[in-house]
Amino acid sequence: MTESPLPGAVNIDTIDRVLHEPARLQIAALLYVVEKAEFLFVMNQTGLTWGNLSSHLAKLEQGGYVMIEKSFKGKRPSTSISMTPKGRGAFKEYATQMRQLFQDLPA
């Protein structure tokens, strides 16, 4: 079945599936408003468990949305995470698509 798209309509196939998952969306939203954060900070802010956060971050990293840097601060290992320009663009695009999708929805 092929229908001609309505003007201003959003093709739901183009919605970013990496960001569309609630936990990843929450991580992305936090990283969008900060320049850089340590793994521990993101974990505390999102309330995700260590394993959960690791797996979601791995998916975001695979998509090129976040950059993960591992280093040592003295004897303490530190993992800092920042959003890449690609990730910022994707997050903005996702927000635009979501706004567009529901803009004509009657209240």
């Binding site: 408003v33 900060v34 850089k36 521990l40 900070f41 974990m43 530190s78």
Partner: peptide, 10 residues
């Protein structure tokens, strides 16, 4: 910092 983690705001 060892408990909360570091953050740099944007």
């Amino acid at each position: 910092l060892p408990r909360m983690g570091m953050v740099k705001f944007g």
